[in-house]
């Protein structure tokens, strides 16, 4: 079996010690797979993603990235290995070209260079936006730029906190294309989502976050129906 790229074993995590948001979390992410985290608001999906990125240190258990404890890795190594798409919309007065340059860690200087490189053929409507300021674009357009920025960071693991936010319907399809393109190249994608279409068509595996922990659930229509009913114990089925 292919070794996992990202592994959480018996992790407890949260913001206040002694009051973990999640406990006994054991997850294993393999190269080239797309994994979705689903569950109701406030159950800890974002907390889990931030733990996977190393923004939050686990109270208990261990997170390993390519076999190394994540907490022992330098910020630079982490930035080159695991990328994170934040749910926040930047509204920053900075050029799109500069966002691409920063995210590619200097490899690419502009949107134009991104277009010229081997890249996923998505979001063509923002491809000419290199010389625009981020805060002069709509939330959806900014979101697409941030998604492209995550891809040009070119990490082994891509973490996305609700990537569908603000995207129009055609862009949602393109997002799925983008994720499939990345996984086909051996990248692992972990995303949190509330989008039915994403849940139904995209992930190789599904984890339900709820009841202060995480359980794997089969990607079946029964699971989707249980999620729609708000059944937190769905994964026990």
């Amino acid at each position: 079996m292919i070794p996992a790229v990202l592994e959480l074993s018996n992790v407890a995590v949260g913001y206040v010690r002694g009051e973990p948001v999640l406990r006994n979390v054991t997850i294993s992410i393999r190269p080239g797979e797309a994994v979705a985290l689903v569950g109701r608001n406030g159950t800890g999906k974002s907390t889990l993603l931030r733990t996977m990125r190393g923004f939050l240190a686990p109270f208990d258990g261990q997170v390993t990235l390519k076999g190394h404890p994540l907490q022992s890795m330098s910020p630079q190594t982490l930035a080159a290995t695991v990328g994170f798409l934040s749910p926040e919309i930047p509204q920053a007065h900075i050029l799109v070209d500069e966002v691409i340059e920063l995210s590619s860690l200097g490899r690419l200087k502009s949107m134009e260079q991104l277009e010229a490189s081997d890249h996923p053929d998505v979001f063509p409507e923002v491809s000419g936006f290199g010389a625009r300021f981020l805060d002069e674009m709509s939330s959806g357009q900014q979101r697409k730029i941030m998604l492209l920025a995550l891809v040009v960071q070119w990490t082994d693991v891509l973490l996305m906190d609700e990537p569908e936010l603000h995207l129009d319907l055609p862009s949602l399809r393109e997002l799925h294309g983008l994720i499939s393109w990345a996984t086909a190249k051996g990248k692992s994608v972990v995303l949190s989502t509330h989008n039915l279409e994403t849940i139904r068509v995209l992930p190789d595996r599904l984890y339900v976050v709820g009841d202060k922990t995480v359980r794997e659930a089969p990607r079946t229509e029964e699971t989707v129906q249980a999620l729609l009913e708000g059944d937190e114990y769905v994964s026990r089925a």
Binding site: F55, Q76, G83, F84, L105, Q153
Partner: peptide, 16 residues
């Protein structure tokens, strides 16, 4: 410049 974009964005690029 990374900081200017946002806290998460900067931290994700290894910036303290």
């Amino acid at each position: 410049r990374s900081y200017l974009v946002g806290d998460d964005f900067a931290q994700n690029l290894g910036v303290n």
